[in-house]
Design a protein around this nucleic acid. Structure first.
Lengths: 167, 167
DNA sequence: ACTGAAAGACACAGACT
DNA sequence: AGTCTGTGTCTTTCAGT
């Protein structure tokens, strides 16, 4: 398969509805991004050309966002995972945009969602250990402009972690 | 690259410390699981053989967990994301194990963590829409044995979502 | 551990049904 | 929208630093 990276405007194009064969292809790719087109073709009972064409189209239309390699947290010294809740002092557009920009630049923050409820954002943060997280919390996150309340919830165990949206 | 799937015992083997070249390889693979060995070799200033060997070793030792294809939630009809907090009534080992087994079988639950604080678990749930989530909440999640309190927080916007642990 | 070469497998494009 | 065929590129192995 090609070494070409998927980088498209995510919501730019309309896309035709995915049929059962597209879903079957996606399911296989989800589990193993490096499966060969041949192997997919065999399993979905097509030849390589249409499989190739369908994958190309799903890349183009943004159905496929990325081919990612998932790495063991602990083995790259990111053994601590923390869920962090944030509320801002002010809620105008400028303040929000500034916060978002800051968050996107922080390598420790691997996910950030705008959420309903008493807090404004939920962050997933990874760090080597508690010292590193404390440093991040006190010296980076707390220092962000317009920061209101902050609450940390520690992940003590990973029960399930998957990216399987298609079944 | 091979179409071989990575499926090893996650914590089974010891692994030698990763050096700077391993990290550089991991960084490239994280961003694009389908990059060619040749391209990696060029960028880290090695020939293909050692790159191939290093990747193979990181697969074996579980540093590389999976080559995954990441799919656009909305485009596969999983546009609604909900964070769901769960507390159990009883906290003995059997009750916990039973809950974990049930959760792992639910396709709607894509992540589940054991957490500190007033709740026992945090779940990330995806569904097509609010109706589908309501159905999941009332007819599946609430029905789980030993279920205590349940609280849902809705994701209104995705600010950041990455798997980049190595920089 | 690395380089370089060499064999076989693969992606990808083209002509056609 | 699909199968078949061919070309160039890639993975993967092996002998030699």
């Amino acid at each position: 398969m090609a070494a070409k990276e998927v980088e498209k405007e995510q919501n730019a194009m309309p896309f035709p509805a995915l049929d059962a064969k597209d879903m079957a292809i996606l399911k296989l790719l989800q589990q193993n991004a490096r499966i060969t087109v041949r192997e997919i073709a065999e399993q979905v009972h097509l030849s390589t050309t249409p499989v190739h064409e369908r994958i190309r189209r799903m890349e183009e239309t943004g159905v496929i966002k990325q081919y990612a390699t998932l790495v063991d947290h602990a083995k790259v010294k990111k053994g601590l995972m923390v869920i962090c809740y944030v509320s801002l002092k002010q809620h105008n557009r400028r303040a929000g945009a500034r916060f978002i920009k800051d968050i996107q630049e922080m390598q420790e923050v691997i996910e950030c969602y705008n959420i309903s409820g008493e807090f404004d954002f939920m962050l997933k943060v990874v760090a080597e250990n508690m010292d590193a997280y404390y440093d991040f919390h006190v010296n980076k996150l707390s220092q962000v402009d317009n920061m209101g309340h902050l609450q940390s919830v520690f992940v003590m165990g990973i029960i399930k972690q998957t990216h399987q949206l298609v079944h």
